[in-house]
Design a protein around this nucleic acid. Structure first.
Lengths: 203, 203, 203, 203
DNA sequence: CATGAATGAGTCTTCATTCAT
DNA sequence: GATGAATGAAGACTCATTCAT
């Protein structure tokens, strides 16, 4: 169920296949030949549509930024409140669920992403999101909470997958559980209780 | 402050330099020439000590098992209790702080790690750790909490590094904040309260 | 001040831009994409006007034959004399000054020109010119003098350009100086004095 | 009769074969595969000895600079005089005769040489040579004469080769003729007669 | 007249690996 | 313990060229 591929549109198919392979095998290990082969075209065809290999990544990021951008725009128009905070987490989770491939790619290919300058696009968005969630006048601990909450969403999407024994769990359940834990984490974020240490021990 | 290099022996120096470069630039992007150059030896010398590049990774992993193994052994001898749970998180944090390079490498090079089956060794330990922390008869949510808590420790070690504006923060503070948030997260884990949803709203 | 481009017609503009780039960057290093880009058309458009890249070169050569051909025709109608000799050198200089781009291209891209057999056309003309200048019954030295005289004209056009220190010199002066040195050189050519050695020392 | 190849020394053999191919087919048209094939080694072997393709050119230039450097050093120790001037031309001719391959390469591959920054090494030497020959307080015309004299030497080495009809001429004779014409040209260079225009018309 | 899409052959370069010494 | 020399496989990228529209 790819996001791109609206039609026979080669460019979109490239993005699709590339993301698939990048997130499975990693950016470095995925060669343009592989992408081309799987699409039934030549490497040179990829270069007709994208100037370089990392331009493909840029293409993927751009083609997927819409939902996060919306969540950010939506959040910026409203004053911070616990409800806003939770809703942002939920919207993030929704947006990411459909984009888990991209997310996984970003998480698991940090070294490549760091120097890909396509990474910057994505990181900006994450930072904006974190800031909206933590709200104004919050402590560093609150920032950590916000970051970890988003991380938790991600964990639900792909890090909890490979479980042993009887802990196997359908994807939907995993994601639901992750969302709840994420909400649980951000719950501690409150404009008043700025001192994280107290918050951590007061219960 | 390298972990290896107890004596001047080359093998250990290779592991040291390799880990450093792997965690900075990624496994794929780090060539044996680079490692050799930084050590002032030839590529061929590396092959005297390690059969393949993968083998270097395996060497690194083995060299770091000790501290987690100890924490696991320590935990297994004791019955679960909130105090044990917290202590395990703290020990994990301590162990990881000293090995943050390896940790970062593992987190950021999943694709390489996955196919290197060197990851298996490490993953087993992580799973064991998670299990000890979540305790017996716990819910899936508890599992998520345990996983995320360890993730939080890691976040404190290297994911919160690149911050914008005035949010820059010394490493020690970051790690302390992360530890507290991690403890906060596992706090919800209680053998009795198996239903995550209630737990999330009851405070 | 392009040679081609009499009307807005594309074919001529292609020749113009191609010559410019060929003489700046060399034949091999200039891609059709570059030519097309600078013209604001697509590569495929070039193929409407020229069958191959080589064909563009051939087009350029043909478009420049006229002035030398005229000088040659003019020279053939007259009996050799020192005045004719000098006048041929002057006419050559005039003709080349207007085509210095092409000349430079020919001089600096010999390997490409050689295998393009487009060079043949040009070389024939040069040989004819040399022969007219050296006149009948002349020595091999005279031939060398004739060749070097033409070479000197060319040197004035583009080889003396990159000078250090205060030797920088406006193009017009460079060309004037070159012309005079060229005339100086051919002055030694005289049907009678066939022995170069004597000629070289008799002054 | 290659200059390198003192023994089975691969590095030297590479320089040899490379220069041969570069001067025959041009720098751009000569692929590393060709060089490697003709040597019976792999492309990768070339990269063991040279970091890049243009590093090979640098290697060639360096390996051939000795004779010109000697001529320059010799000339710098002496005050200018017509005899010095002529002797420099002769020494240049001698040095170049043995290096005609390199010379041809430089002449015919200007576009490549220009951006190869290996060209700088060579050009510096040529400029120094020109300066020594033209002597102090000389006119711009004198400079042109000096440049053209060296050019004449080069012409004798490879530009007069492809002659039609009965003008074919053994290499040694060609070079001898060229040397004499070159000497003839520099003869006009005299510290006193600084005004080139007079010189050109006074005869 | 011209373009958009694609190809096939080839380029330089890098890398992990090997082996005789 | 280590080096110097070399290899084979592969990688990203470029280019001239083609052709249906």
């Amino acid at each position: 169920m790819s996001i791109h591929t609206p039609r026979g549109d080669t460019r979109a198919r490239i993005l699709d296949v590339a993301l698939e392979l990048f997130s499975e095998q990693g950016y470095e290990k995925t060669s343009l030949r592989e992408i081309a082969d799987r699409l039934g075209v030549t490497k040179a065809a990829l270069y007709y549509h994208f100037k370089t290999k990392d331009d493909i990544v840029r293409g993927i990021v751009e083609s997927m930024s819409a939902p996060i951008d919306e969540a950010i725009a939506w959040g910026r128009e409203r004053p911070w409140s616990p409800e806003l905070r939770d809703e942002l987490v939920r919207r993030f989770a929704d947006g990411m669920t459909a984009r888990s491939g991209l997310l996984r790619f970003f998480h698991e290919n940090q070294p490549a992403v760091r120097e890909l300058n396509a990474g910057a696009l994505f990181k900006e968005r994450m930072i904006a999101m974190v800031q909206l969630i933590q709200g104004p006048e919050s402590s560093y601990q609150d920032r950590v909470r916000a970051v970890v909450a988003l991380l938790t969403i991600n964990a639900g999407l792909f890090m909890l997958q490979e479980e042993p024994e009887g802990h196997q769990c359908p994807a939907a359940d995993r994601q639901a559980a992750a969302l709840e834990v994420a909400l649980e984490i951000v719950q501690r974020i409150t404009p008043e209780a700025t001192d994280g240490k107290d918050a951590a021990t007061e219960v």
